[in-house]
Design a binder for these strands. Sequence first.
DNA 1: TTCATAATTGATAGCAGTTATTACTTAAAA
DNA 2: TTTTAAGTAATAACTGCTATCAATTATGAA
Lengths: 149, 149
Amino acid sequence: MHAIEEILRKKKIKVTPQRMAVYSILKQSKFHPNVEMIYQKLKPDFPAMSLATVYKTMDVLKKVGLIQELNVGEGGLRYDAQIRPHSHIYCKNCGKVVDVDHFPLEELQDSLLEKVKEETGFNILFVQLYFFGTCPECNDKKELLEASS
Amino acid sequence: MHAIEEILRKKKIKVTPQRMAVYSILKQSKFHPNVEMIYQKLKPDFPAMSLATVYKTMDVLKKVGLIQELNVGEGGLRYDAQIRPHSHIYCKNCGKVVDVDHFPLEELQDSLLEKVKEETGFNILFVQLYFFGTCPECNDKKELLEASS
DNA sequence: TTCATAATTGATAGCAGTTATTACTTAAAA
DNA sequence: TTTTAAGTAATAACTGCTATCAATTATGAA
């Protein structure tokens, strides 16, 4: 039995094929898909699945702490099955979201959270750090375009 | 003439009373309003103003670099006339957005941006750091409720 | 295994935030 | 002052998401 099954059963949440499939897609993919992307990926195996089910599943998985939500300002949300704190970088050109693995978000959180708590009086639950820019692939394409003009 | 007027004229963007009013509200308020809040504040002085005009004005002001957009995952966006890099903290209970002035986002940006550029190959344009939690006022209210139960 | 039932799913209507369109109006260059 | 490119108001349309509800299914008890 997979870890996800145990976690869901423990919380009296039903283990359904749809939920397993959504989580499996998220676990596999590195590009941090949004609901629409997940829906499209599921279509071949679950032609009857509804978009609403994907939305509801994201909600369930988030609530039990199996995934985290990313908001890169696209309108829709992106999802990540890696729940360890880490930051993300977003390509404003092609929409790609990439993990920034070696960026010290964990240390940052440990060492500086207290300072921010003192300054603001807030009880801090979590931190999100986003970098925005353009990815190497898009930069290369742009250079090619400029060179040819 | 105000700085904003000069900046707009330099870019051949017309200086209109609506634009001045929107910017003035943003400059005054510390609570990082969203479009709806700005619209409501403007109503007494500009009863004829359309919501669409506020949206378009936010767009113009953002493009000329007079304001920055904040995305705290509410659906709508929040706006800040303080464009110097700084981080924000969001109360998940009451929706308040507060500046975290002394958090070292500027130093962070200077010292660590290069590392992230190397790791990812991205060209980085800007960084956004959000803290999420509950504000002192909401925490106090909760304590009172618990004490009285 | 079968059954009862509460949770989940799929289909769809509805909602909120945002954008597009268009006819009218205005700021500002000539 | 006149001209006109740009902006505004009103509103229709679009998008991401949520609510609703009848049909279906996972799960625990018999």
